[in-house]
Protein backbone atom coordinates (compact mmCIF):
# COMPACT_ATOMS: atom_id res chain seq x y z
CA UNK A 1 0.00 0.00 0.00
CA UNK A 2 1.09 3.55 -0.70
CA UNK A 3 3.36 5.39 1.67
CA UNK A 4 1.07 8.41 1.87
CA UNK A 5 -2.05 8.41 -0.24
CA UNK A 6 -2.54 12.18 -0.19
CA UNK A 7 1.02 12.91 -1.33
CA UNK A 8 0.60 10.28 -4.00
CA UNK A 9 -2.71 11.47 -5.44
CA UNK A 10 -1.61 15.11 -5.47
CA UNK A 11 1.78 14.24 -6.95
CA UNK A 12 3.72 15.89 -4.11
CA UNK A 13 7.41 15.12 -4.43
CA UNK A 14 9.74 15.22 -1.43
CA UNK A 15 11.30 18.57 -2.21
CA UNK A 16 8.10 20.45 -3.05
CA UNK A 17 6.86 23.32 -0.86
CA UNK A 18 3.59 21.60 -0.03
CA UNK A 19 5.31 18.34 0.88
CA UNK A 20 7.54 20.25 3.31
CA UNK A 21 4.55 22.11 4.72
CA UNK A 22 2.75 18.83 5.40
CA UNK A 23 5.84 17.46 7.17
CA UNK A 24 5.54 20.34 9.66
CA UNK A 25 2.42 18.55 10.85
CA UNK A 26 4.00 15.11 10.96
CA UNK A 27 1.63 13.55 13.51
CA UNK A 28 -1.42 14.74 11.60
CA UNK A 29 0.01 13.45 8.31
CA UNK A 30 0.86 10.08 9.85
CA UNK A 31 -2.53 9.62 11.52
CA UNK A 32 -4.33 10.62 8.32
CA UNK A 33 -2.59 7.72 6.61
CA UNK A 34 -3.15 5.22 9.45
CA UNK A 35 -6.83 6.22 9.61
CA UNK A 36 -7.10 5.49 5.90
CA UNK A 37 -5.51 2.11 6.53
CA UNK A 38 -7.95 1.36 9.37
CA UNK A 39 -10.97 2.26 7.23
CA UNK A 40 -9.92 0.64 3.94
CA UNK A 41 -7.67 -2.22 5.04
CA UNK A 42 -8.46 -3.10 8.67
CA UNK A 43 -6.93 -6.33 10.01
CA UNK A 44 -10.43 -7.87 10.14
CA UNK A 45 -12.73 -6.63 7.34
CA UNK A 46 -15.62 -8.67 8.76
CA UNK A 47 -18.84 -8.03 6.78
CA UNK A 48 -17.51 -5.31 4.47
CA UNK A 49 -14.85 -6.71 2.14
CA UNK A 50 -11.76 -4.77 1.08
CA UNK A 51 -13.12 -4.70 -2.47
CA UNK A 52 -16.47 -3.31 -1.30
CA UNK A 53 -14.73 -0.64 0.79
CA UNK A 54 -12.61 0.45 -2.17
CA UNK A 55 -15.66 0.48 -4.47
CA UNK A 56 -17.69 2.63 -2.07
CA UNK A 57 -14.72 4.98 -1.61
CA UNK A 58 -14.37 5.39 -5.38
CA UNK A 59 -18.08 6.14 -5.54
CA UNK A 60 -17.81 8.85 -2.86
CA UNK A 61 -14.82 10.43 -4.58
CA UNK A 62 -16.88 10.61 -7.79
CA UNK A 63 -19.87 12.12 -5.98
CA UNK A 64 -17.61 15.07 -5.10
CA UNK A 65 -15.77 15.12 -8.44
CA UNK A 66 -12.47 14.23 -6.79
CA UNK A 67 -10.76 12.83 -9.85
CA UNK A 68 -7.46 12.06 -8.09
CA UNK A 69 -9.08 10.04 -5.31
CA UNK A 70 -11.45 8.26 -7.69
CA UNK A 71 -8.43 7.09 -9.69
CA UNK A 72 -6.67 5.97 -6.55
CA UNK A 73 -9.67 3.96 -5.35
CA UNK A 74 -10.20 2.45 -8.79
CA UNK A 75 -6.63 1.15 -8.59
CA UNK A 76 -7.15 -0.15 -5.07
CA UNK A 77 -10.34 -1.88 -6.20
CA UNK A 78 -8.44 -3.43 -9.11
CA UNK A 79 -5.94 -4.97 -6.67
CA UNK A 80 -8.77 -6.64 -4.74
CA UNK A 81 -10.03 -8.73 -7.68
CA UNK A 82 -13.50 -7.19 -7.75
CA UNK A 83 -16.55 -8.91 -9.13
CA UNK A 84 -18.92 -7.11 -11.49
CA UNK A 85 -21.10 -5.77 -8.71
CA UNK A 86 -18.27 -3.90 -7.01
CA UNK A 87 -17.09 -2.34 -10.24
CA UNK A 88 -20.64 -1.26 -11.04
CA UNK A 89 -21.25 0.48 -7.73
CA UNK A 90 -17.92 2.33 -7.84
CA UNK A 91 -19.47 4.81 -10.27
CA UNK A 92 -22.72 6.56 -9.24
CA UNK A 93 -23.59 7.14 -12.90
CA UNK A 94 -24.07 3.41 -13.39
CA UNK A 95 -27.36 1.99 -12.18
CA UNK A 96 -26.83 -1.74 -11.79
CA UNK A 97 -29.94 -3.86 -11.42
CA UNK A 98 -30.55 -6.85 -9.19
CA UNK A 99 -28.52 -5.69 -6.20
CA UNK A 100 -29.30 -7.25 -2.85
CA UNK A 101 -31.45 -5.25 -0.43
CA UNK A 102 -28.40 -5.01 1.84
CA UNK A 103 -26.28 -3.45 -0.86
CA UNK A 104 -29.07 -1.12 -2.00
CA UNK A 105 -29.37 0.14 1.57
CA UNK A 106 -25.60 0.62 1.89
CA UNK A 107 -25.38 2.60 -1.37
CA UNK A 108 -28.33 4.78 -0.46
CA UNK A 109 -26.70 5.60 2.88
CA UNK A 110 -23.30 6.31 1.33
CA UNK A 111 -24.83 8.76 -1.15
CA UNK A 112 -26.97 10.51 1.47
CA UNK A 113 -24.24 10.95 4.08
CA UNK A 114 -21.64 11.98 1.51
CA UNK A 115 -23.71 14.66 -0.24
CA UNK A 116 -26.37 15.71 2.31
CA UNK A 117 -25.33 14.62 5.80
CA UNK A 118 -27.62 17.26 7.30
CA UNK A 119 -30.66 15.37 6.02
CA UNK A 120 -29.76 12.10 7.78
CA UNK A 121 -32.14 10.99 10.57
CA UNK A 122 -32.79 8.03 12.85
CA UNK A 123 -34.93 6.50 10.07
CA UNK A 124 -31.81 6.17 7.88
CA UNK A 125 -30.08 4.06 10.53
CA UNK A 126 -33.24 2.00 10.97
CA UNK A 127 -33.20 1.23 7.24
CA UNK A 128 -29.70 -0.21 7.65
CA UNK A 129 -30.81 -2.46 10.52
CA UNK A 130 -33.83 -3.53 8.46
CA UNK A 131 -31.48 -4.49 5.60
CA UNK A 132 -29.58 -6.80 7.94
CA UNK A 133 -26.64 -4.70 9.13
CA UNK A 134 -25.66 -5.08 12.79
CA UNK A 135 -24.36 -2.43 15.21
CA UNK A 136 -20.77 -2.89 14.24
CA UNK A 137 -21.55 -2.97 10.49
CA UNK A 138 -23.28 0.40 10.84
CA UNK A 139 -20.32 1.94 12.66
CA UNK A 140 -17.95 0.40 10.10
CA UNK A 141 -19.90 1.98 7.27
CA UNK A 142 -20.20 5.35 9.06
CA UNK A 143 -16.44 5.38 9.67
CA UNK A 144 -15.66 4.59 6.06
CA UNK A 145 -17.95 7.36 4.81
CA UNK A 146 -16.49 9.83 7.33
CA UNK A 147 -12.86 8.99 6.53
CA UNK A 148 -13.30 9.23 2.76
CA UNK A 149 -15.16 12.53 3.03
CA UNK A 150 -12.39 13.87 5.29
CA UNK A 151 -9.87 12.81 2.67
CA UNK A 152 -11.90 14.49 -0.09
CA UNK A 153 -11.89 17.79 1.83
CA UNK A 154 -8.19 17.56 2.70
CA UNK A 155 -7.33 16.82 -0.91
CA UNK A 156 -9.47 19.73 -2.16
CA UNK A 157 -7.84 22.14 0.30
CA UNK A 158 -4.31 20.95 -0.43
CA UNK A 159 -4.93 21.15 -4.17
CA UNK A 160 -5.81 24.81 -3.63
CA UNK A 161 -2.50 25.34 -1.80
CA UNK A 162 -0.53 23.44 -4.44
CA UNK A 163 -1.95 25.45 -7.34
CA UNK A 164 -1.82 28.96 -5.87
Amino acid sequence: MANDVIDEVLGLSQGSDLFRLRVQRAELKHRTQTSYQAALKPSDPRNLSYAMRAALAARMARLWNSRELAEHYDQLLGQEAPDGVESAISDPKLRPEGLTARLEAIIRHVDLVTLRPKDATRADIERLYAAGLDDRDIVTLANLIALVNYQILVTAGLRMLRDN
Binding site: V113, P117, I125, V139, A142, A146, N149, L153
Partner: peptide, 10 residues
Amino acid sequence: GWANRLMHTL
Protein backbone atom coordinates in the same frame (compact mmCIF):
# COMPACT_ATOMS: atom_id res chain seq x y z
CA GLY B 1 -16.60 16.81 7.77
CA TRP B 2 -15.67 13.53 9.45
CA ALA B 3 -17.02 14.20 12.97
CA ASN B 4 -20.34 15.66 11.77
CA ARG B 5 -20.92 12.59 9.59
CA LEU B 6 -20.61 10.39 12.68
CA MET B 7 -22.24 12.46 15.39
CA HIS B 8 -25.17 13.77 13.35
CA THR B 9 -25.96 10.41 11.73
CA LEU B 10 -25.38 7.88 14.56
